[in-house]
Simulated scan of single mutants.
Amino acid sequence: MPPARKRARSYDPAKTRAAVFAQLAHVRKAVRGLTPEQLALPTRLGDWTVRDLIAHIGMAVTAVHRALDRPAPARQDVTVVQWPFATAASAPAIADFTRNVAADHPDLDAYLADVDSSLGTLLDEHPGSRLLETNAGALPLDDYLVTRTVELVVHTDDLNAAVPDLEVPYDRHALAAATRLLADALAVKAPGGSTEVRVPPYAVVQCVEGPRHTRGTPPNVVETDPLTWVRLATGRVGWADAVAGAKVSASGERADIGGLLPVMA
Rank of each mutant, 00 (worst) to 15 (best):
W48N: 01
L53M: 03
P71E: 04
L123C: 11
R198F: 06
R172Q: 09
L53P: 01
P226L: 02
A176Q: 05
S251M: 08
V222L: 04
T49S: 14
M264D: 07
D104M: 14
A88H: 15
T98C: 08
T43G: 02
L152C: 11
Y11G: 03
H105N: 15
P73Q: 07
T35K: 15
L45A: 00
V115M: 12
R99Y: 12
D96K: 13
D184V: 03
K15R: 14
V222A: 04
A102Y: 10
A60I: 02
K6S: 00
P219Y: 07
G120I: 10
D157A: 09
T228C: 10
L166C: 13
P164S: 15
L139T: 00
L260S: 05
K247A: 09
L159C: 06
A242N: 03
G259Y: 11
H105K: 13
T121F: 11
Q23M: 12
D142A: 10
K189N: 06
V101R: 07
D96H: 09
G120E: 14
L132V: 04
S118Y: 09
V199A: 07
A91K: 15
L181G: 06
R231G: 07
R66A: 15
P73F: 10
A30K: 07
D142M: 07
A40G: 14
D77L: 14
L119H: 12
S194M: 07
T43L: 02
E223L: 04
A250G: 11
L123A: 08
L260D: 08
L119E: 11
S251R: 13
Y11H: 10
D158R: 01
E196N: 06
L131R: 03
Y144F: 04
P71I: 10
T43D: 00
T156L: 04
R44V: 12
R198G: 04
V64N: 07
D171G: 08
S10H: 08
L34I: 13
L186Y: 08
D109F: 14
E133K: 12
